[in-house]
């Protein structure tokens, strides 16, 4: 049973809720391997993917998740919506709610925008990434992948490497993994380490070698070119050399280390092709798992309310 009509972040949900989502996703994953990838569960339900930021994979993943569950899905992205006409998010929310939708998946460049929308409308809201705040479904699929590969999350040593400051993926992973009992280290160029991050219960490492030492999982974040222009680090070349994950740096990690990446990957910058293609990486499986996790969320939110067992 999820306690809220919305999924806005992992900070405010419980360990039990995360476990429920992950176990439901397991059942959903089976559907993805059928010849007929469709169940009638959400027939008659409609959802809107409201994307104020360009995204192909997350939007497609949500859209397919909805379609596999028989929900009707509609996409609105900035270029085609009334956003350009100056309509506020609150008004847009009200407008699409008036059309009878049951759920909105929102991506927005402003942190907190999904909160605002969730307050405004009674339909469910799923945060598909807001500013530098949270990206809960990405963290859930990361955790799903970790659990699938490692059999557990509790007690694992997880290193998150890269631009932590601007990363909503990092924040959601920190909240979720901490709740599930993992130990987290973060590492990146120091200007990209957010202030007071250690107050969240993570260890800040000044070198990748230190962060990787004995790690069970390495979550490599995408580095954006714009960060160099803003002076957070001197060059992509230097970043790749010092913070990029290659075979050599993996040596200090556990032998069966799992390497994940939220994608899309800048090959040769934050991670080498060699590592991507190696058996320790599960980047494509993450994508598959993303659909399963999103199907689970749609099911849990759209069928709302308490968990019950059918009686004859």
């Amino acid at each position: 049973m999820l306690s809220s009509k919305d999924l806005l972040g992992l900070k405010d949900i419980s360990k039990e809720e995360i476990e429920l989502i992950l176990s439901t996703a397991e059942a959903m994953k089976e559907i993805l391997f059928r010849d007929i990838k469709k169940v009638p569960t959400l027939r008659g339900k409609s959802m809107v993917c409201l994307f104020y930021e360009p995204s192909t994979r997350t939007r497609t993943s949500f859209e397919l998740a909805g379609k596999y569950m028989s929900a009707d899905t509609v996409n609105i992205s900035t270029s085609t919506s009334s956003v350009v006409k100056g309509e506020t998010l609150r008004d847009t929310g009200r407008t699409i709610e008036a059309m009878g939708i049951d759920l909105v998946v929102i991506r927005h460049s402003c942190s907190g925008a999904p909160h605002m929308l969730a307050e405004e409308i009674s339909a469910s809201v799923i945060n598909a990434g807001d500013g530098m705040h949270e990206h809960p479904t990405q963290a859930l699929l990361d955790m799903f992948t970790i659990k699938e590969k490692k059999g557990r999350i509790e007690g694992l040593e997880v290193a998150i490497i890269g631009d932590i400051l601007h990363s909503r993926v990092a924040r959601s992973n920190i909240w979720g993994l901490k709740k599930m009992g993992a130990n987290i280290r973060v590492c990146g160029p120091m200007p990209l380490i957010p202030p007071n991050i250690s107050d969240l219960g993570v260890r800040v490492c000044s070198s990748v070698e230190e962060a990787v030492e004995g790690a069970d999982v390495i979550n490599v974040l995408r580095i954006q070119r714009e960060r160099q222009d803003k002076g957070f680090f001197p060059s992509l070349r230097e970043y790749a050399k010092i913070y990029g994950i290659d075979r050599e740096k993996l040596k200090g990690a556990k032998e069966d280390v799992l390497v994940i990446h939220p994608g899309p990957v800048n090959r040769g910058v934050e991670i080498t092709s060699e590592v991507i293609e190696s058996s320790c990486a599960a980047i494509e499986e993450q994508v598959t798992n993303g659909v399963a996790v999103r199907m689970a969320l749609l099911y849990l939110l759209l069928q709302g309310g308490a968990k019950g067992e059918g009686a004859n």
Partner: peptide
């Protein structure tokens, strides 16, 4: 303010 809250909320901080 730049600090724990800006980090948690993902809002840009003013130190």
């Amino acid at each position: 303010n730049e600090g724990l809250i800006s980090t948690e909320l993902g809002l840009r901080g003013i130190p």
